[in-house]
């Protein structure tokens, strides 16, 4: 559905996006993850034909964003990060305007606008001026205008920023329902959101892709830390542990009760686990607890992003 090949975008001398390639299949939800200034918004603006890339090829729904932009724009719904709306319009007038300008036939404009308002929980404010509604409602109007025409592709730049927890849940459910029929790309800083919503994540930093996978794979691939609680001579245990094959590092934590607590970083999970077991049996240490620490996306994110910087 979306193909991006060797995409580069330069603002003057500054390279905001550096040779990115990825594809998104129909019905997929792709998460764009990255720190501030990573280039997420820039990529989205290119996908929505707001400006062209400096280099590279971008295809959306089979059309080239640069050469055939009108056909691309007919098939996308876009929520820009700043949520720019016409402040002097009422919510329902605005959504009707957007529905009409996106080519909805006259008779269906009202129905589509009403449905979008319904889906995004806007009925209460439908008669208010956009300049007078609260930030969260603005965000919802932004999402509603992106959805209003049932576009094939949805491009949402930080869709859940500024919403209350209940609304975040509702909007996430809405986005989830869209998957399958629609193709969605969303950017976010909120890591759990990615695991909840996205089938696949692309982590970008400083304009480059640093990782790309399913959220759960990203997590298991780097599940390499193990917590150990062992009774015995702490010094000796530490020495023995660091000698085990497959173990990269040993850290002694605050002891709990009469057992010493260690976190061990494993290079090779299986080898390390077996080695540690054997070592404990050999030395007759008392094993209290041994478990793999689950690694959160936060850890991976920080690891990937800081690795890049180092």
């Amino acid at each position: 559905m979306i193909e991006v090949e060797n995409l580069t975008k330069e603002y003057g001398e500054f390279r905001a996006v550096d040779n990115i390639s990825f594809t998104v299949e129909k019905g997929e939800i792709l998460g764009f993850l990255g720190p501030n200034g990573a280039g997420k918004t820039t990529v989205m603006r290119i996908l929505t034909c707001f400006f062209p890339p400096t280099k590279g090829k971008v295809m959306v729904a089979g059309y080239n964003c640069f050469e055939d932009s009108l056909n691309v724009r007919k098939r996308i719904g876009y929520l820009p990060q700043r949520v720019p709306l016409y402040e002097d319009m009422k919510v329902n007038d605005y959504l009707r305007f957007v529905a009409a300008i996106k080519g909805t036939p006259g008779k269906e404009v009202n129905r589509k606008a009403a449905k979008a308002m319904d889906d995004c929980g806007l009925s209460e404010v439908s008669n208010k001026l956009i300049s007078t509604i609260s930030g969260g409602y603005r965000q919802r109007v932004g999402i509603a205008q992106a959805l209003v025409n049932d576009p094939e592709v949805l491009i949402l730049d930080e869709p859940t920023v500024g919403l209350d927890p209940k609304q975040i849940k509702e909007i996430r459910n809405l986005i989830k329902e869209l998957a399958g029929k629609h193709t969605v790309i969303l950017s976010t800083h909120i890591l759990p959101e990615v695991s909840i919503l996205c089938g696949r994540v692309i982590i970008i930093n400083k304009g480059k892709v640093v990782a790309e996978d399913r959220p759960e794979n990203l997590a298991t691939e780097s599940a390499q830390r193990m917590l150990l609680r062992i009774g015995g001579d702490a010094q000796l245990i530490g020495q023995e542990l660091s000698r085990v094959g497959g173990v990269k590092g040993v850290e002694r934590e605050q002891a709990s009760g009469d057992a010493n607590v260690f976190t061990v970083v494993l290079e090779d999970e299986k080898l390390g686990r077996q080695g540690i077991q054997a070592m404990i049996e050999r030395n007759r240490f008392e094993l209290v607890e041994m478990r793999l620490l689950e690694v959160s996306l936060e850890d991976i994110f920080i690891k990937l992003v800081t690795k890049e910087e180092a």
Binding site: T48, F50, P80, R82, V98, I101, K102, Q145
Partner: peptide, 10 residues
């Protein structure tokens, strides 16, 4: 910033 939406409308 409304130009961003205006220019991405079809």
């Amino acid at each position: 910033g409304t130009i961003e939406l205006l220019l991405t409308f079809p």
